[in-house]
């Protein structure tokens, strides 16, 4: 089995992988990063979206072996030192998740989108999220959350700690 190197959430891993294993399965089963979810294994639902060398990609449509040498960020890598990413914070405050299964993919997609478009309209947000399916929320609170995160990030302010 081939050996590959993946840098995941800043940590480099040397891994032996079966060539047919999907990147999502390697992340979940070999690295125990189960936050990346498999929702359709066909690239449609977006639950498995990760950042691959800084861009969103479907980890269900990527063989781990071809990602050799890549830099990967998963949902587990969004918070830093216990500090949530402003997008995570906004998802929490705006009730942008219910069952939570699709949420990691939405978070990753949103983080990337806001890095390219820091001041989006609601319509642009909806279009940017159109590659991620959610069955619970009806999307409205997710759009609210991305809007809120964009404001927070533009202000550059540190985000408030949620009430819990």
């Amino acid at each position: 089995m081939p050996n590959i190197t993946l840098t995941v959430n800043g940590t480099q891993h040397r891994l032996e992988v079966d060539p047919r294993w999907l990147l999502a399965d390697v992340l979940r089963e070999q690295l125990n990063l189960t936050g990346t979810h498999l929702g359709c294994e066909q690239g449609v639902c977006g639950a498995c979206t990760i950042l691959l060398n800084g861009r969103p990609a479907r980890s269900c449509l990527t063989l781990a072996v071809t990602a050799d040498g890549s830099d990967i960020i998963t949902v587990e890598g969004l918070a830093h030192n216990g500090q949530l990413h402003p997008v995570q914070e906004a998802f929490w405050q705006e009730h942008a998740l219910q069952c939570g299964f699709c949420t990691p993919g939405f978070l990753i997609t949103s983080v990337h989108f806001l890095s390219e478009n820091p001041n989006p309209t609601r319509e642009e947000i909806r279009e940017a999220l159109s590659g991620n399916l959610c069955r619970c929320t009806g999307y409205q609170h997710i759009v609210n959350a991305v809007e809120r995160a964009s404001e927070t990030m533009r202000k550059g302010a540190t985000h408030a700690v949620p009430q819990d």
Partner: peptide, 14 residues
């Protein structure tokens, strides 16, 4: 209130 469930879910810990 925002949910008590969410801190884990938004970090992929659900």
């Amino acid at each position: 209130l925002p949910r008590v469930e969410d801190r884990a879910l938004i970090q992929g810990q659900g």
